[in-house]
Structures are given as structure tokens and as C-alpha cells.
Design a protein around this nucleic acid. Structure first.
Lengths: 228, 228, 228, 228
DNA sequence: AATGAATGAGCCTTCATTCAT
DNA sequence: GATGAATGAAGGCTCATTCAT
């Protein structure tokens, strides 16, 4: 087992389960469930099997822990499949499909289900000092990217109101399945978003719904150009 | 005691300024801002100019007050313009436009801006025991109504997955402007949703975006029927 | 017993032992023993037989309680015998004797032994935000008063360095018996400052010690004037 | 192993920068500022550039460190200039002047301004278990020495109440400028005790103030003796 | 010899609630 | 009918100390 040997010689920074990592993980759960304000340090430490003072020691603050959770959530997002899939797409339409499918997959498909999306839901219901950071680091790049794709399809600039409105239509349709999850689960109990099949159903619907519009709008704007 | 009798026969709303009503009004504000958990009884009582014990006296509980706020919010919604406008519409397409415009108007246009919508945003981020009640009394009727309109346009049953998906697309696009408000305000600062013009811009976009799809889908399903 | 009847008709504002008063009294003790920082709200509340939250309810803060204790301590000082005795004295020398005797009596003779003096000792060892207030309300008036008396004896202005130095000599000698109490009790165990006899011994010593100097200095300055 | 042997024979003070010494130095500062109770181990270790556990490792306890600081402070005091100057004085009066000047110089003139004096101020406001030690090792010898000088001038025994009262008058006047520093700085802002000139002004005042009394009292007691 | 990590006790404060009036 | 006073539980945080290395 040379691999195991190699692992052993690695510096101990990759400790299998250090308190710090367990705290972040537990905090992710709790913050996703209760939001920053209502989450309690005690609850987090209990789930992490750590002392109450551990948060203060490792992160100085409840807010410090929260910030760290967000940072990790962000960096986990950055190199993400979404990004990759989008950039490797051949046509903008394909890119949009990847984009939408990626969002839904990350919402329910990952090991940490919905984590950052649910945290962001809380962040919007009750913003914390970290909101600005989140927007600039996570949301804005993705928003710009989406507008780029849509603008390309529409033959419009990324700043054109129509481009923006369509981008918001995409975002609204997608995040609705996270923000509105507790309600959807009751009003439409047959939809099982943790199953791949239903996730694809939704993703395809949103993609079709959107692309049909974009194509029509693209034809309109071309016609306008010609009539000029 | 004719005076006492007279008093009894007087409608109770003639009380000019009962503590109870002021409490509900103040609670609405605070709950909309902070959600149930983070809202404090002290803050509510202070804004209502009432004693700290007033909430427990009049509503037994913080949760009792919250439930009452929701009930009022609901009854204010029931006989609402939305309902009315929809039922007076001549075609289902017109009804859909009224429906969407009504939502946006109620979000930002009313005197109590966004009240119940913001409360519901909190309710979804962090459900309370009252969520079930809210769903059944407020959300489900509206959801069924919307599916009725869409089903009519699509020539599909209200339970058909496509009908449901389209309904969710409408809802998602619309509520996005409430739930995502803090973010939208930063990412698209030029959009002023408290101004009628921009509200109409958004409402028309969502309506167009949706109806263009519904018509196409309706053609598809008709074609399918024929090909059978 | 007409007096008792009269008492009964008095407004109940003079409740015999309300929590608020008990808190202030207990806080006075504890603050005098431990100083502001080291005193704990729990200890205070326990001695007052009240709940931990009582401090927050009545005084908003630990600091709020502390401020109130100081204020009370001050107002108890203001109309005090010291003041009175000094103003009724016929000669400045007699006034000085009253002044010194008054300080010593208030240090150890009162029901609340040394309260404010010990608090002030803490305040000097480790100032709190309330120090400025204390200085202006309590210390400065007394300081000015003392300089007035001494200046009169010396035939010098109250601002003259000699006047100030002599004033500090008086203050230093007197407060030494409070600030240095724990040490004096060990180094000179025979001195019982809680007994009138020894208090008078000390007060007379300080008075004699001081007055002998002041007279000599007065003669000197007169001589200087003449020689001019 | 000649190197090891050499190391062993080297005096330990040659260690250029041992953690232990830095800890004591930092602790001196912090204890002087905040007193034993309010000083925090973290603050001390931070200023010393040492680990949080360093105090417990080197001194077993916060109290152990404190005791060590006092011991050092004392031994630094023992062979001190005060002592020396006093013993080399030719007359008791001169010795008293040296004594008083020495106290004031040590209070404000040294590199470590007021260190042990400020610590002792805290010790009196809030005694620690180390107080007894401090009294016996530092204060009592000095107290006895002072009484010796005064007794000599007065032709009275060191235990005579008058001797003691006069000794306390000297101590009280002198330490007043340390204990009362924060207040004096406000009530008499023109006095700059960190400047030699003002220190001498004060020292001379106290010496004159005291000696004038002692001489008078000496005459009195001589007269008494004669009249017997 | 020395330290980073972790701990449990305790601090001040705030909360929703109840009690006596 | 309504309120000021009071309460116990809990929250975030800091502290001196210990443990494993």
C-alpha cells in the first residue's frame, strides 16, 4: 500500500477530524437550519462534540465562525462543476442548460444538501454583516455570467433591461425550489427533489421555459434591427 | 343602564385605538422585519406603546400574537383586489396578467409594504408551527386558482405536471422580487420596485414570458391530441 | 398614636424594603469590597435576595447600578454633616477641625462603614467611566472648600501652590486611614478606628499637625509682605 | 562535553531573553495597571510574546506569577537607593528628607514608573493572599525605619502613639500622590509629577511640613520632661 | 522545555413569561 | 382590564487552567 504510506508522510495538517473542521461542518448544518441569529453556539458545539469555548478559540466569534462557513461554502462553489460545465459548453443554449441543471444539482444532490442555498435564504430574510461579502464573492460573478449567456442568445448587452429581466426569471424559477421548499413539499408532495429524475424534470422545464422565450425575443430584436 | 347597553351594541371597531389593534399592527411590522424567532416581544410592545405584559395578556403567547397577525393578514388578503380582478377577467390570459400584476402591487405598492410577503419569506427560511395554517388558508387557494388559470390555457388538468411546473415558474419569478429584494437592490440598483413604472415593467415581463410559453405549450398539446 | 396614622396616609412610595433599594444597598457593600470590575452581579443579587435579572430590570446595566450607587452615595454626602459643621464654624481653624473630624467620622462611624470612601479607593486604583462624574460632583467641591479654608488661614489665594500643597497634605493624611486600612490594621493593631476615642485621636493629630504648619506659614508670608 | 559544562557554569542571567523574565516584566506592567484580579493571563502573555500556557508552566499559577513579581519588586527595593541614602545621612532630619524624596523619586522617576507602588495601591483596595507577605517583607521594615527616624527626632520610643501618628502623616502625605494620581491629575493639572522640579517641590513641602511639626513636638516633650 | 488545542466554570445580559395588585 | 415588578432559563463570551504532544 504505497498510497497509505504516502498519506502517512504527508504533513499532519490533514488530520482526519480536527475540532475546527467538525465545528465548521456542524455550524453549516445549524446555520442552514436556523439562520445566523437563531442558531446557537451551544447547539453547534454539541453537534460537533466540542466545548462551548471552542468556537471562541478557533473563530473568535459566532460571527467569525459564520464568516468562515460562508468562505468555505464559497470556495467549495468556486471551482465547482457549474462553472466548468458552463465554460465547456459549445453553444450559449447548452451553457444555459448546464447552468440551470448545475444549480438544481447543487441544491439537493450534494452531500451537504442545500447548505449554502439555505443559508442564503436566511441571509435574504434577515441580512447579516456578511451579506455584502456573499454578494460580491458568490452571487455577483454568477449573476454576471448568467447575463453574459443570456445576452449572447438575445444579441443584447448584458446591461439591457430585457437581459436582466430574463436573468431574474431564470434565477427566480430556480431558487424558488430552495426558498420555497417547505411549502412545495406540502403543496406538491409527489415531487421528490432529492431524486435525480425529478431534478431533471424541473431543470428541463426551466430550461425549455426560458429558452423558448429567449429565442422568440431574439427573433424580435433581429426583426427590429432589420426594420431599421 | 342605557349607556352600557348602547356601548354593547356598538360595533367593537369603533374603539378608536385599542391596545390590541396597536399590538397587531406593531407586531406585523416587527415580524416582517425580523421573523418570528428574532422578533422580540419588548420591541413590539414598545412600538405599540404598550406594557411588556400586554402581549401575554391579550394573546396568551408570542405565538398567539403571531398567529393573530397571520390571521389578519390572511383575511385582508381574502377579499382582496387580486381575487376580484381575476374573477372579473374575461379571458384566462387576462386573468393571469391580473394575477401577476396583483402580486407585485401587493408586494411593494400598499401602505404596509410587503408585510405578509416578508413574513412568508421568513416562514419559509424558518418555518414555525403556524406554517401549516398559512399554507392551507393563504397559499393553497391561490395556488389552486393559479393552476386553474394555467390549466385552462394549456388545456390540461390542474394536476398535470406541466401545469404545476408552469405555475411554479410564475410563482418563482414573482416572489423572487420579494425574497431576493436585498440582493436585487444591490445587483440591479436602477430598478425601483416602489415605483409604479418599474413594477409594471416587471409584471409585464413575467406575464409575457409566461404566456408566450403557455401558448406554445398549448399548441404542442393540441398537436399531440390530433396526431393521436 | 396619631403619628402612626399619619404615616399610613402617606403615599406608598416609602415602601419599607423594595427590591430596588435592597439592590443599591447590597451593591454598595459589594462594590466597596471588590470594586466595580471584580464585583459580580450575582453576588449583589444574592445578597439583596433578588433575581439575577433584577439588576438589568431596574438599572439596565451593571454600570447603571454602579452609577446609581455613586449618585446615592453622593447625595447622602451632599447635605452632610461635614458641610454643615464647616459652614457653622466661627473661625477657619475651627472649620478645618470640623472638616477633618467629619471625614474620619464618615469613614468609620456611619452605619455604612466606609462605603463611598472604599469605592473611591477602587476608583483610583482602577478608574471607571464614572470617575469624571465622581470627581466633579463629590471631590472637586470638597477640594475647593478645603482650599478656601486653608487659603484663608494662610492669607493666600486658593490657587497658590502652597495652598494646594497644604490641602493635599490634609487629604493625604486623612484618606490614608481608609486607603491603607488593611495595612494599618496589621502594622498598628492597637488602633481601633471604629471606636470614637481613636478616631478623635487621629483627627486631633491631623488637625494639630496641619494647623501648626499653617500658622507658621501664615507668619512667614506676613513677614514677607512687610519686608516688601 | 565541555560545551555543556560551560553552559552550566555560565550565570543564568546571560540568557539574553528568557521567557520567564519577559513574563515577569510584562506581568509587572499589567498588574500595576489592573491589579491582580482584573489582570488577565492572556494580556500578560501577549505582551511577553509568550504562549498562553507559559504562565502556568513557569509559575504554576496566576498567583504564583504575581508572588514572583512581588518578590522581584521587593528585592529590587531592598538594596535600593532609599535605604542607602537614609543610612548615610548624618542627622535624622536629613534622613527623613532623603526618605521622602526617595519615595517620590521611585514613584514617578524610575524607568518602571510607579510599578510596585501602583501594585500596592491595588493590594490595598483589594487585598490578595500575598498581602501579608508584602507587608512583612516590604512595608514593615520601611515603617519601622521611618518610626526610628521620627522617634529619634521626637525623643520618643518608636511605639509611642505620637511617633506612629507622625509616621502615618508622612506616609499618608507621600503615598497620596500615587494612590490619588488619577484625581490629582484632574484637580491640579499644572502639577507634573514626572518632572524633577515638581517632584522636588512636593518632596520639600512634605519634608518641611513634617519637620516643622516634629521640632515643635520635640520641644513640647522636652518641656514636659523638665516640668516633671 | 515549551506549546497549540481544548475545557469547564463563570460572567453579563436578554428573553418570554408570570405574579400581585 | 391592565400593568409594573420580578423571575428562571438561556445566550454569547471570557477566563484560568490542563492536556497531549
Amino acid at each position: 500500500m504505497p498510497g497509505a504510506a504516502l498519506k502517512k508522510t504527508l504533513p499532519p495538517q490533514s488530520d482526519p477530524d480536527p475540532t475546527r473542521a467538525k465545528l465548521i461542518s456542524a455550524a453549516g448544518e445549524v446555520f442552514a437550519e436556523s439562520g445566523f441569529q437563531s442558531a446557537t453556539v451551544r447547539e453547534i458545539c454539541q453537534r460537533a462534540g466540542a466545548n462551548v469555548a471552542a468556537v471562541n478559540y478557533h473563530f473568535r466569534d459566532k460571527l467569525g465562525l459564520y464568516t468562515e462557513v460562508l468562505r468555505e461554502s464559497i470556495s467549495a462553489n468556486q471551482g465547482a462543476i457549474v462553472q466548468e460545465a458552463v465554460t465547456t459548453a459549445k453553444t450559449p443554449e447548452e451553457a444555459l442548460r448546464h447552468f440551470i441543471a448545475g444549480i438544481l444539482r447543487r441544491m439537493y444532490g450534494d452531500d451537504r444538501p442545500g447548505w449554502n442555498f439555505r443559508i442564503m435564504a436566511h441571509e435574504m430574510a434577515q441580512p447579516t454583516p456578511a451579506l455584502g461579502h456573499v454578494i460580491n464573492e458568490v452571487l455577483r460573478p454568477r449573476y454576471d455570467q448568467l447575463r453574459g449567456i443570456i445576452g449572447e442568445i438575445l444579441h443584447l448587452s448584458t446591461d439591457h433591461p430585457t437581459t436582466r429581466l430574463c436573468a431574474h426569471s431564470v434565477i427566480g424559477q430556480a431558487v424558488h425550489y430552495v426558498h420555497g421548499y417547505p411549502v412545495i413539499a406540502i403543496l406538491w408532495p409527489d415531487l421528490k427533489l432529492n431524486q435525480l429524475k425529478d431534478r431533471e424534470l424541473v431543470a428541463n422545464h426551466i430550461s425549455d421555459f426560458t429558452l423558448r422565450n429567449l429565442r422568440a425575443l431574439a427573433r424580435q430584436s433581429k426583426r427590429k434591427e432589420k426594420s431599421k
